[in-house]
Design a binder for these strands. Structure first.
Lengths: 220, 220
DNA sequence: GAAATCCAGTTGACAGTGTCTACAAGGTTC
DNA sequence: GAACCTTGTAGACACTGTCAACTGGATTTC
C-alpha cells in the first residue's frame, strides 16, 4: 500500500513517516522523537508540527503503516498455502495450516522490526479509542478471524464464537511475540529457540490436523 | 514481602519506591519520572540519584516489587483451591483448576494496576539481561511451571517439555492481559467481556478437565 | 575532644525534549 | 496587484535526566 520512492516530489509528511520508520528500525522506540525525525529529513524542529498535531499523532500514523504491513504479511503467508486441502492430507494444505502460517507471519513481523512492533502495541503510547487507529489495527485481526471461520466450518471448535477464538489465538501469539521481543521469555526460559516456543503454542491452542483426522491416519 | 508503613523511620529509598507505585497507579507510566517521584516525597530533584543510578534503575526496582506482588497473588490464588481433587470431579479441585486460577490471578494483577503492569512488561523500558531483574521475574513463572508439572504428571500433555508448555500458557494469558490493558483487544473485538475472552483462551489452551474425564461423565 | 572523613540531600547547570508563538517566503485567488 | 493561505523557520518556555559542586550533620580516627 505504501508506495515508497515511486514519485520524486514526495511530500514532507511522507518523508517524515519514512524517517520515523528508519529511526525505529535503527535505534528502536527510544530514538523516535519529533526532533530526531526532523533532523533526519533535514528540516527545522518545528516543521513536523505542520503535519502532525503532536508526537502521539506521528506515532499513530507510523503505527498505522505497521498495521497495514502486518496485514499484508499475514495475507501473503496465507496465500502461499493452497486453499483446498491437498490429497496428502490436511498438513500439506487447506485451512488448518493457514492458521499457524498466519501466526508465524505475525511473529516474524515482530522479530523483524521490534521497534515498530513495540510502537504498535506498547501500552500507554497509543490511544486505541482513536477511531482511525482502531480501524487500521482491525485489518490484521480480520485476516486471522477469517481463517478461524474457515477452520470452524471444517469442524474445529465449531461451538465457540469465532471472534472469541480469533481473539484467543491473537492473544497467544501476540503474547509470545511481546515477551520474546523484550527478552522476558528468554529471561525465565533460556536455551529455548523461538521455533520451539511457537511450536508449543501452536500445539496447545491451534487446531491440530492430526487429531482431527486420526481416524483415517492414526500413525502419522 | 513488602511490609508497608510498619516502621516509621523508613529510608528515603523505600519512600521513593512507594511514591513511584502511587504515581503509576494514579497517573500511569507516563507520569513516572525521577522528578515527579522526588516531588511526591518532598525532596529535591537530585535526591533520587543518591539511591538509583538512573531512571532505568528506579524502574527496575519498581518492576521487581511488581514481580514479587504478582508471584504472591498467583500463589494465593492457587492455594485457595484444594490440592487434592475433590470427589465431585476435577472441576471442583485438584491441579487442573489451579492453572486457570493462576492465569486469572495474573490477569487480575494486570487489570488492577495497568501502569505497574506496563512498567513490568513494556518493551524497551527494562533490560532483561539485568541479572537481578531476570531473577525477580522468574518467581512468578516458576509458580506457573509448577502447576504445569502437576497437571502433566496427572496425564495432561505429558510428552511436551513442561517449561515450553508453561511458556506457551504464560504467553497466552500475558498476550490477553497486554492487549486488554491497552485497549487493543476491545478495539477489534468490541462488546466482549474480559470474562468471555479469558474463558475462550482457557478453553483453547488450558487442560480441559471435562475432556480428560469424558469416559466417566460424558454429558457434563 | 578536635579533626578528618563520609554520607545524604541541595542547588545549579546543561543538553535534550514537546509545544507554542511570531515570523518569513512562496504560491494561489480574487 | 493585493490579500490570503500554506509551509517551513526561529526562538522561547517548561519539562526531563544527568552531572558536578556544595553543605550540613553524623561518624570515625587520632
Amino acid at each position: 500500500m505504501a508506495r515508497e520512492s515511486n514519485k520524486d516530489p514526495e511530500t514532507l509528511r511522507d518523508r517524515l513517516v519514512e524517517a520515523a520508520l528508519e529511526i525505529l528500525s535503527a535505534e528502536g522506540i527510544e530514538g523516535l522523537t519529533l526532533r530526531s525525525v526532523a533532523r533526519r529529513v533535514g528540516v527545522s524542529h518545528g516543521a513536523p508540527a505542520r503535519h502532525f498535531r503532536s508526537l502521539s499523532d506521528l506515532r499513530a500514523e507510523v503505527a498505522a503503516v505497521g498495521y497495514r504491513s502486518l496485514s499484508e504479511s499475514i495475507e501473503k503467508a496465507c496465500a502461499q498455502i493452497p486453499a483446498e486441502p491437498s490429497p496428502d492430507g490436511p498438513l500439506e494444505g487447506g485451512p488448518f495450516p493457514r492458521l499457524p502460517a498466519a501466526g508465524r507471519a505475525y511473529l516474524d513481523c515482530a522479530l523483524a522490526n521490534p521497534g515498530l512492533f513495540a510502537l504498535m502495541f506498547r501500552p500507554g503510547d497509543l490511544d486505541f479509542e482513536n477511531a482511525s487507529l482502531a480501524r487500521d489495527s482491525q485489518s490484521a485481526f480480520n485476516q486471522l478471524h477469517e481463517q478461524v471461520r474457515i477452520a470452524q466450518s471444517a469442524g474445529w471448535k465449531p461451538t465457540h464464537p469465532s471472534r472469541l477464538v480469533a481473539g484467543a489465538l491473537w492473544a497467544s501469539i501476540h503474547g509470545l511475540a511481546t515477551l520474546w521481543v523484550q527478552g522476558a521469555y528468554q529471561g525465565v526460559n533460556p536455551n529455548v529457540s523461538i521455533d520451539e516456543a511457537v511450536a508449543t503454542s501452536f500445539a496447545l491452542s491451534a487446531p491440530d490436523p492430526v487429531s482431527l483426522t486420526d481416524k483415517e491416519n492414526e500413525h502419522e
